[in-house]
Amino acid sequence: MNEKQARPSHSYRGAFAIAAAALVAGAGFLYVKAGQGGKKEHSAACEAARATARIADGTAKGEVAAFAAAKDPEPMPALAFNGPDGKPTTLEAFKGKVALVNIWATWCAPCRAEMPALDRLQQAAGSDKFEIVAINVDTSRLDRPKAFFEEIGVKNLKFYADPKGDVFFGLRQNGGLLGLPTSYLIDAQGCEIGRLSGPAAWDSPEALALVRGVSGQRL
């Protein structure tokens, strides 16, 4: 009687153990496969950005210590917005130069606060090798963003805007955007070197050193 009872319980256990082992092995295989596939694809597109990101990581100190260099640089998600003339442009159009893409809105107090400093950074470091691309993401009261630029007397920044809200939500989904402002430092190939979430003193010597180091300009 005892043995009759023991047998089914043994075979259940055996079947359970095999099923569990198969499940773990399967999950492990998928995990490893997914991890490898993703990494290989990206590192090939942004190989040069790896070294740049390491330089940026070492340079980002003081006022820009919050800059988070990418450990495994990836291409930026595609972004479409309007240029200074109101005509559609894309992030792709900025390939060939290093860009500091700043996402801002008039309803974001810290964004407004850092804008004069960004204007000064553009004056100090702007060239055919580097440009600050401040993209406004206001979706209503569209007279406000330009009025704000005039109010603070912006001299060097161009006015880029996405009144449709696609840039914000695109970066929210795929660009690690948590809040505003967020600034992305992007190399000439369109790969993200790193990002700074929140405001910063962009006219500080540390910020200047960061962008010059990445854009290959002499200090």
């Binding site: 309803w107 974001c108 107090a109 810290p110 914000f168 948590l178 809040g179 505003l180 979430s197 929140g198």
Partner: peptide
Amino acid sequence: THCPDICHTTLF
């Protein structure tokens, strides 16, 4: 309204 980041992002 003086919230530094998350509030207005969520509100937006």
